[in-house]
Design a protein around this nucleic acid. Structure first.
Length: 613
RNA sequence: GGUCCCGUAGCUCAGCUGGAUAGAGCAGCUCACUUCUAAUGAGCAGGCCUCAGGUUCGAAUCCUGACGGGAUCACCA
C-alpha cells in the first residue's frame, strides 16, 4: 500500500467516515515537505479542520498523533500553521530503494485498451520542417507514454499524397526538370520535389505579374477593384481567382489533377515515381528522428471514403440536403455552425474523408481511443468532426482526442514558405549535431574516444538538445525558436540530463563489478538521498498523469528534476569513497536505479542516452 | 464580430485536482576542478504572476469581465 493510501485509510477511520458513507481520500493533499521544514511529506489539514470542529493547529496535532500511532512507517510529526509534516522511518527509505532495485519495470497496470496515435501526416510536395518536428516528436512521445501507461498503441500517419499541390510539383518537374532525379542531382528526394514546388511558385508569380500588365489583367482590375483599393492589394486578394480562372500553369495543374483522378497511366506513373523519391527522403528524416510507424494510410486511398456513410445517415436524417444538392450537418446545438460534408457536385471535402478514415480505422483496428496530433489551427475542424461522429452514435466517438499544439514561431514571427523562412528539418538536425560536436571538441575528456564513437555521441547529444528543447514546452503553447542561437546544451536541457546519466555510468564502470544488492545497515540516510527516493517513488504517477493529459512536458520536467537532484547529490557526497561500506552499497544502488529511470524517462521523449560524453 | 488557445524575472519556460516566503534555465556578476566526467555545483541580482472584480480560512491556479497576442469561422486541405 502506498503512503497516501495508508494515510487515507487512517484518516477515514479517524473521522469514522464510513459510518457517514463518505470517502475522504480525495481530500488528501500530500506534498513533499519544503526544504525549510523538518519532515519528509506534508499533509494539508485545512480540509479536515471543519469536520474535527477544532482549529487547524489542533486538528493537525490530533491527526498527527493518530497517524503516528496507527501508520506503521510514520516515525514522527510536527505541525506548523495547519501543515502536518510527517517524518518516515528509515525502513521506509530502505524499502523504497530495494523495491526499485529488484523490479526495474515500471508497475502500471495494463489498461487493456487499444489506442491509435496519428501524427506527422505530411504533404508529399515538400520536405519536413520545424513545425513537423514538433508534431512528430509530440506524436512519438505521447505514443511511448501511452504504451508505458499500459495501453496498446498503434502509430499511424495519413500521407497527403494527392491533390493540386502535388500536381504543382509534378508539373514544374515535367516542364523545367530536364529529367533530374535524386541520383543525377545528389539531392534528397523530398528536397528535390520541394525544389520544384518552389519553382512552380516562382513561375506562377512571374506569369501573374505578366498578366497584371496585360490587357486582360487591366480589364479585370478595372471591373473588380473596390473604390480606393490599391492595385497591389487587389491583386493579392485576386490571386486564387487568377489561378483558377486565367492562369495557364494553373490550368495545366488542374488538368493534371483530373487526369490523375481518371487514372491516366502516364500521370499515375509520374506521380508514383516522384512520390517514391519523397518517401525515400522522408524515411531518412524519420530514421534520424528515431521514429517509425506501424501503419500508413494514403490519402489517395482514403479520399473517397466517407461518402457512403453520409448517404446512409442521410436516410435517417442525421444530415440534411440543400436545394443545390450539397449535404450538411447542423451543429448549432453544440455551439458550432452548420458544416458541409458533401459538395453540391457530390464530391467529398476534408470532413468527408476524416469521417471515412475514422470509421475505417475503427473497422481495421478496433481502437477505443484515437489521438490526432495536429496543429491548433485545426481546432475547429476536429471539434466539428468529433461532434458529427457523436451525433452519428459511433461507438468510438467518445475516445477521440485532438492533441492540439501551438505553432513554432521564429523571433521574426511565423514561418512562411513563400518567404523562405522555413527551418528545414534535416538542416536543423545537422546543425544541432554540429553544435554538439563543437562543444565536445572543447572538452578534454573526449580525447581518448575513437572517432566513430564520438560521432555517435555527438548525434545523441545534439538530438537530445533538440528534442528536449521542443518537448519540455507544454504542447498547447506556441513556442519561439531562434535558429541563429541554436539550441542550448547547458542547464535545463537534454545534454544536462544525459550528463547525469553519463556520470552514473562512469561510476558503475569504475566500480567494475556487479553491484551487490543493498540489504541494510546504512542508518544515516541524508536529505538529498531521501529527495532522490521521493522523486523515484513518484515516477509511475508522473507517467500516468502525462498519459492522462497527453503532455510529454511533464516527463521532461521529471527528468530534469531527477537529473538536477542527482548532480547536487554527486557534488555533495562521495559514492565510491563513501564513509562506510553500507553507505557505498546504498549509494551505488541508488545511482543504478536513477540511471535506469533517467534512461526510461528520456526514452519516453525519444531521447537516447550515451554511455560517455 | 462569433468561437477557441495563450499572457508568470530582460529572454525561454515550470508551477499537479486551490495550500506555507511564486520556481528553474539562459543572459549578467562572484566562487569551486591534484577529486566518481566542470555539458557540473554553491552564491548574488532580477517579480503590481497583464488588469479589475468575485468565490474561499487561503487564488498565479477556480468564476466573470476588460486589455494584449495568436488561431479559426471556405463547396481549401
Amino acid at each position: 500500500m502506498t503512503l497516501k493510501a495508508s494515510i487515507a485509510s487512517a484518516i477515514n477511520t479517524f473521522f469514522h467516515s464510513e459510518r457517514e458513507g463518505i470517502d475522504l481520500s480525495n481530500k488528501i493533499v500530500l506534498n513533499s515537505t519544503r526544504k525549510e521544514f523538518d519532515g519528509d511529506y506534508t499533509l494539508v489539514v485545512f480540509p479536515f479542520s471543519k469536520m474535527a470542529k477544532k482549529s487547524p493547529q489542533d486538528t493537525a496535532e490530533a491527526i498527527g498523533e493518530y497517524l503516528k500511532e496507527n501508520v506503521e512507517i510514520i516515525e514522527d510529526f510536527n505541525v506548523i500553521k495547519g501543515f502536518l509534516n510527517l517524518s518516515l522511518k528509515q525502513e521506509h527509505w530502505t524499502k523504497v530503494l530495494t523495491d526499485l532495485s529488484t523490479s526495474e519495470e515500471i508497475t502500471i497496470p495494463k489498461k487493456d485498451k487499444k489506442v491509435i496515435v496519428e501524427f506527422s501526416s505530411p504533404n508529399t510536395n515538400k520536405p519536413l520542417h520545424l513545425g513537423h518536428i514538433r508534431n512528430i516528436l509530440l506524436g512519438w512521445s505521447i505514443s511511448k507514454i501511452l504504451k508505458s501507461a499500459g495501453y496498446d498503441v498503434l502509430n499511424t500517419q495519413i500521407v497527403n499524397d494527392r491533390g493540386i499541390a502535388v500536381c504543382k510539383s509534378m508539373l514544374a518537374w515535367q516542364l523545367y526538370g530536364d529529367g533530374e532525379t535524386p541520383e543525377s542531382s545528389g539531392i534528397k528526394g523530398d528536397h528535390l520535389i520541394g525544389k520544384y514546388y518552389v519553382i512552380f511558385s516562382k513561375k506562377i508569380k512571374e506569369e501573374y505579374a505578366q498578366w497584371q500588365k496585360s490587357e486582360e489583367g487591366s480589364r479585370v482590375k478595372a471591373e473588380q477593384i473596390k473604390d480606393g483599393e490599391e492595385a497591389s492589394v487587389f491583386f493579392k486578394r485576386y490571386e486564387n481567382t487568377y489561378f483558377n480562372e486565367y492562369s495557364k500553369l494553373g490550368l495545366q495543374a488542374k488538368e493534371m489533377l483530373q487526369k490523375w483522378e481518371q487514372n491516366d497511366t502516364e500521370i499515375r506513373a509520374l506521380w508514383k515515381k516522384m512520390n517514391d523519391w519523397v518517401y525515400a527522403g522522408f524515411e531518412i528524416t524519420y530514421n534520424n528522428l528515431g521514429v517509425h510507424f506501424d501503419k500508413l494510410y494514403y490519402e489517395s486511398d482514403t479520399y473517397l471514403l466517407g461518402k457512403d456513410i453520409i448517404e446512409e445517415e442521410l436516410k435517417v436524417n442525421q444530415f440534411y440536403k440543400k436545394d443545390d444538392g450539397s449535404v450538411w450537418m447542423d451543429l448549432e446545438d453544440v455551439g458550432l455552425d452548420h458544416k458541409l460534408v458533401l459538395r453540391s457536385d457530390g464530391t467529398s471535402v476534408y470532413m468527408t474523408q476524416d469521417i471515412g478514415t475514422a470509421e475505417k480505422r475503427y473497422e481495421n483496428h478496433g481502437a477505443e481511443k484515437m489521438i490526432y496530433v495536429v496543429g491548433n489551427e485545426q481546432d475547429y475542424h476536429f471539434k466539428a468532426l468529433f461532434e458529427i461522429l457523436k451525433k452519428l452514435g459511433r461507438p468510438y466517438a467518445d475516445g477521440l482526442y485532438h492533441l492540439s499544439y501551438g505553432m513554432v514561431d521564429l523571433p521574426s514571427g511565423r514561418m512562411k514558405s513563400r518567404e523562405g523562412t522555413v527551418v528545414d528539418a534535416d538542416d536543423l538536425m545537422n546543425e544541432v549535431i554540429g553544435e554538439a560536436a563543437k562543444n565536445a571538441s572543447e572538452r578534454e575528456i573526449q580525447l581518448d574516444i575513437p572517432e566513430a564513437e564520438k560521432t555517435e555521441i555527438n548525434r545523441k547529444v545534439g538530438m537530445a538538445a533538440l528534442k528536449y528543447f521542443i518537448l519540455k514546452v507544454n504542447p498547447k503553447k506556441r513556442m519561439v525558436f531562434d535558429p541563429k542561437e541554436s539550441v542550448d546544451m547547458k542547464g535545463d536541457t537534454g545534454p544536462y540530463i544525459q550528463n547525469a546519466f553519463v556520470r552514473i555510468q562512469s561510476i558503475l564502470r569504475n566500480y567494475g563489478d556487479e553491484i551487490p544488492t543493498y540489504t541494510k545497515g546504512y542508518t544515516d540516510i541524508k536529505e538529498i538521498e531521501k529527495e532522490l527516493l521521493v522523486l523515484l517513488d513518484g515516477y509511475p504517477r508522473v507517467i500516468e498523469e502525462a498519459a492522462a493529459q497527453y503532455d510529454p512536458s511533464q516527463i521532461a520536467s521529471f527528468s530534469y528534476q531527477l537529473a538536477k537532484t542527482y548532480h547536487r547529490f554527486y557534488n555533495d557526497v562521495r559514492i565510491l569513497k563513501a564513509e562506510s561500506e553500507e553507505a557505498k552499497s546504498f549509494r551505488l544502488n541508488l545511482c543504478r536505479v536513477i540511471g535506469i529511470k533517467l534512461a526510461h524517462s528520456m526514452d519516453l521523449l525519444g531521447v537516447e542516452m550515451p554511455e560517455k560524453m
